[in-house]
Design a protein around this nucleic acid. Structure first.
Lengths: 150, 150
DNA sequence: CTTGTTGCAAATCGTTTGCAGGACA
DNA sequence: TGTCCTGCAAACGATTTGCAACAAG
């Protein structure tokens, strides 16, 4: 909910657009609107939420899906999986990523600081969460696939 | 792939069935077969894989879905989310859980030891994985929901 | 006998794809 | 001008639900 100052926002926006261009994605009005939304209202959003949240422009759901795919490839957005079969996206700036506590019931989320495990669990408790579980999975390319691909 | 000795397997099976009964789930042939499969062939399996893997009994996909839901509630199985929109399940014994490295390409998985973050990333590298990313999310019940529910 | 479980068919829902018109470089 | 992007309709695929026959307590 915390809005960012105009300068900071524009800075993040142009950095993001540059990243996109470097990955051969063109600069369009649609993408600017989406990026601006992600930068201003941060917190992981589902496609549905992004669609509902856009004031300035009505946009097709499919377009948002496709843009998020592009954003993810260009490392301008990060996909968050809350384990309910709904993809959520969050703006990814220059700094590292962080993780979330998600309420199992209402899906309210809070940010935790940057990665560290037992410390984070304690932090989540301090934020008022109980019955805490977590998912941690690593993704990479295995040796076989690496050799086959390159 | 490592098969478990008969005694150990039966022990795990009865412990699991007991857990199920404690959660008011009845003991059926179907569930015994499924539990036995999960205990013998460990590694997270998709519903599809479980279905294909069952030698002893042909079973409806829907039944497996429903049983896994029951298993999860009774804490006899753990849901693993590999971020590809397919739910996977793994037997959950008395001991704590562990995490996995998953190949982005072929979905091959390896177990890492019990939770610990930077150590795990190194372990994954030693196992031959490259371009490693990870997902870590915490799930709990927030204060509002806790107060509302109880 | 009463409740929980299974199988089958059909519905649901998030996401993806094909295609034609339109915008970007 | 040629390629990339968008919107619309339709397809897809994992999961869920309704219902009737069946097994468990």
């Amino acid at each position: 909910m915390t809005k960012i100052q105009k300068t900071k926002r524009d800075q993040a926006l142009s950095a993001a657009l540059l990243k996109l261009q470097r990955c051969h994605f063109s600069r369009t009005k649609t993408r600017e609107v989406l990026l601006t939304f992600l930068i201003e209202e941060h917190g992981p959003f589902s496609i549905e939420e992004i669609h509902r949240g856009l004031k300035r422009q009505e946009m097709d759901l499919v377009t948002i899906y496709r843009c998020m795919q592009a954003f993810e490839k260009a490392d301008v957005a990060r996909r968050c999986d809350f384990g309910d079969g709904i993809a959520r996206f969050e703006f990814q700036g220059e700094d590292g990523h962080h993780h979330h506590v998600i309420c199992k019931e209402c899906k309210k989320t809070d940010n935790l600081g940057d990665c560290e495990l037992p410390a984070l669990e304690i932090k989540a408790k301090r934020l008022g969460y109980s019955k805490i579980k977590h998912t941690l999975e690593f993704f990479g390319v295995c040796k076989d696939c690496f050799d086959r691909t390159s």
